[in-house]
Amino acid sequence: MSISVNNISKSFKGKTALKNISFEVKKGELFGLIGPDGAGKTTLFRILTTLLIPNHGEATVVDFDIIKDYKSIRNNVGYMPGRFSLYQDLTVKENLEFFATIFGTTIEKNYDLIKDIYVQIEPFKDRRAGKLSGGMKQKLALCCALIHKPKVLFLDEPTTGVDPVSRKEFWEMLKRLQNKGITMLVSTPYMDEAAICDRIALIQDGEMLEIDTPKKIVKHYSKTIYNVKANNMYQLIKSLKSYQHNYSVYPFGEFVHYTDTRTDFSPIDLQHYLTSKNLKNISIEITQATIEDTFMELAK
């Protein structure tokens, strides 16, 4: 296994950030850690990259112990933190050369690994990093994390705050890197990105909710979900939450995802109820469960 975590726990001033976390990441796997802000994702990343020491438990990265062999781990992993952490006053090229020098290598020696990414930022190689767009900053950070050919790549919310086009491009780059044999642990609050991973772990309040492939996790959702739409979203949500038979109600894009407590639920009954609340242009249709639906259910 590239990563093995056994009963890792971490607290800060009496507040639990991680509670008995256990999971494994196989060699060459793209593994996603999915959860909202404050779930414990960054704390776990900092432990696995030897920046924090856990209160309890043990873990290995590429067969090195996170406490005893921290120097070996640092030489074998790449870490891209959630916040842009490169030197903003240095140019693109200077940042890359600096990180290559730290690891005793050169851009030229490992250019084949970063080529597909670097060609996109090369036209701006003399621009200061602080002047790059969000998407370009992420590509530069990824290049710097890869410059020493790491065996495992840790990416902590790499697409947060990045536009949708750049997000799509970034994940395409990760899939290409996976084809080159690099193991990746990626955290994200975006449920749609979870479907791209080989396996995912859903995490909430420092605890693992479920670990499996995206398809299998979605299959575990047992209730029928309805896409509900009307002319007034705010009033629709308020009315659905007041409906005596509602099991769950939450917005999902232009719709509201609704589940009912009854096994003999009839959409017609719900439509009559919503009409009585002065809502118009009402539509109620069955939809497929998503990872977000499953997460919301498990988080209850």
Rank of each mutant, 00 (worst) to 15 (best):
S4D: 13
K10G: 03
K13F: 12
N20L: 03
S22Y: 04
V25W: 05
K27S: 14
G28C: 11
L33I: 10
G40F: 03
K41H: 09
I47C: 09
H56W: 12
V62F: 11
V62Q: 07
F64N: 14
D65V: 05
K68R: 15
D69H: 11
I73G: 06
R74Y: 06
N75Y: 14
Y79I: 04
Y79K: 04
R83A: 14
S85H: 11
S85P: 09
L90G: 10
T91D: 08
Y118H: 11
V119C: 13
V119I: 15
E122D: 13
K125T: 09
D126A: 12
R128G: 04
M136F: 11
Q138M: 06
Q138D: 09
A141N: 04
H148Y: 05
K149T: 10
L153N: 01
F154N: 00
L155K: 02
D163W: 03
S166R: 07
W171L: 04
E172W: 06
R176Y: 10
Q178H: 04
M184H: 01
D192V: 03
E193F: 00
A194M: 05
A194K: 03
C197Y: 03
I203R: 07
E207S: 15
M208W: 06
I211E: 14
P214C: 09
I217Y: 01
V218W: 02
V228K: 00
V228M: 02
S239C: 03
S239G: 01
S239P: 01
L240R: 00
S242D: 14
N246P: 08
V249Q: 06
Y250V: 05
V256N: 03
H257T: 08
Y258W: 09
T259F: 07
R262D: 11
D264P: 05
S266W: 09
H272F: 12
Y273P: 10
T275Q: 15
K280D: 13
Q288P: 08
A289C: 09
I291A: 05
T294S: 14
E297F: 06
K300P: 03
